Simulated assay, not measured.
Amino acid sequence: MIAINGKIFTQRMSGLGRFAFEVTRRLLDAGTHMVIYTPNKPLHDDYQSLANWIHRDSFGMHPFLWELFRLPVLLGKSGCSLLWSPANIGPIFPGVPHYLTLHDLTFIHDATWMDRLPRLLYRTLIPLICKGTEYLISPTEVIRQEVLAHLPEKPAGHVLMCHQGGDHVPLRDSSPPEQPLDSEKYFVFLGNIDRRKNLARIVDAWALARKKVDQPLKLYIIGAVKFKGNYSIDVEDASIEIRSNLDDAAVFALLSQARGLLFPSLYEGFGFPMLEAMRSGCPVITSNIGAMAEVAGSAALLVDPHSAQEIATAIVDLCRSDELHGKLVGMGFERQKTFTWDRTAHYYLDLFSRECR
């Protein structure tokens, strides 16, 4: 039987939660025998379909400490043959073979990307946790290579890579809309406000682009309800609107008619918004570095994320050229086919099955 570290399921669904949920649901659909352990907190509404497999611990402990120290106690009594931790953190001494999905190494990069205390904790704990794992699984080859460089004592054969999916988003018909887009073209930024998302430079690029486009433009910043790392931006431009608390259906509806997604991040582990946009028929402007370039391939406009001018040029090109817009929509539809949750779950199922034989 497989044990899952389910702390992530007590929190509102995020990118990590989406990954954990989509893979777990498919493992259950495949008939996998498992139990999902959670700390003494209610299961979040986003994950109620998993309720029948949840073992909620009655022991009162902070969730962060719970997965480090209390979870191994439960595993020792469970008879489970392995533990999967899907969201970066797990026990230091698990007591059973531990498979950890490590999504990124943000904490080893720019010190301004995280608050000081979380960064210090991650820099200290992640190497200790990884030392006790059987396998580490990264979402992109870029991150896998980072892990190998940062944890040289980990055998390369035990640091794996499995791309994630994007087909939780309804697929829009790839044919062009019968009606033209609204006269006011709009772009979308999707994500939290923190420095690595590069939003301040996006705002600068937006100002440059608007000077070169002779028609109304709008930029919707979606989901950026939390300012991270003591970081904020001033948005005084009336053409920029922050929209928060939108459900998935509303977000995907906005993407389906957007002129483009602005996603020139400085660093990502994977980058779900790119696939969500591609499945919605929305062209993508993203970075020419790291996981963004790996996931987008040639199906996006790749720009230097440090150059507001390059980002602005891509915005202008996409505004002016219907041919370019249509080409990127078609290429995006083809590219997103590579990334399915069934494929991801099948990889994990095969990996776990080797241990359970």
Rank of each mutant, 00 (worst) to 15 (best):
L208F: 00
L318H: 15
A224G: 15
V213N: 12
A224N: 07
P273C: 02
E236L: 05
N230L: 07
S256N: 07
S239R: 00
K218Q: 13
H325S: 12
A253Q: 14
A312G: 03
H325Y: 15
E241M: 11
L217E: 08
T313H: 07
G332P: 11
I285M: 13
I240P: 05
V213K: 00
L255K: 03
D214K: 14
F270Y: 14
S307D: 10
K218M: 11
K226F: 08
F263H: 11
I311Q: 00
R279N: 14
K327Q: 14
D317I: 02
L255G: 08
E310F: 04
F252S: 09
A238F: 05
V235L: 13
V213E: 10
M292L: 11
K211C: 06
P264S: 00
G269M: 07
A293H: 11
Q309N: 08
I315H: 01
A258M: 05
V329A: 04
L254W: 04
P216C: 00
G297N: 12
L255C: 10
A308F: 14
G332S: 09
I222H: 03
L301A: 12
G297T: 11
F270S: 03
S239I: 03
K327G: 10
D248E: 15
R279K: 09
L318T: 11
L261M: 09
C282Q: 03
A291H: 10
A209T: 00
Q257P: 05
P283K: 09
N245S: 05
E241R: 11
E276A: 11
A299T: 09
I242N: 04
T313P: 00
S265H: 06
D317N: 15
A299I: 08
F252W: 15
S321L: 05
A207T: 01
D214F: 06
E310T: 04
K211Y: 06
L328G: 13
Q309E: 15
K212L: 06
G297S: 15
E323C: 04
G290Q: 01
H325R: 13
S287W: 03
L219K: 02
Y231E: 01
K228W: 08
E310Y: 04
H325L: 10
S280L: 11
I311D: 00
G229W: 08
A238D: 14
R279Y: 10
G223W: 02
L217H: 08
G326R: 15
Q309W: 06
L302G: 03
K211P: 01
V213S: 01
R243Q: 12
H306P: 01
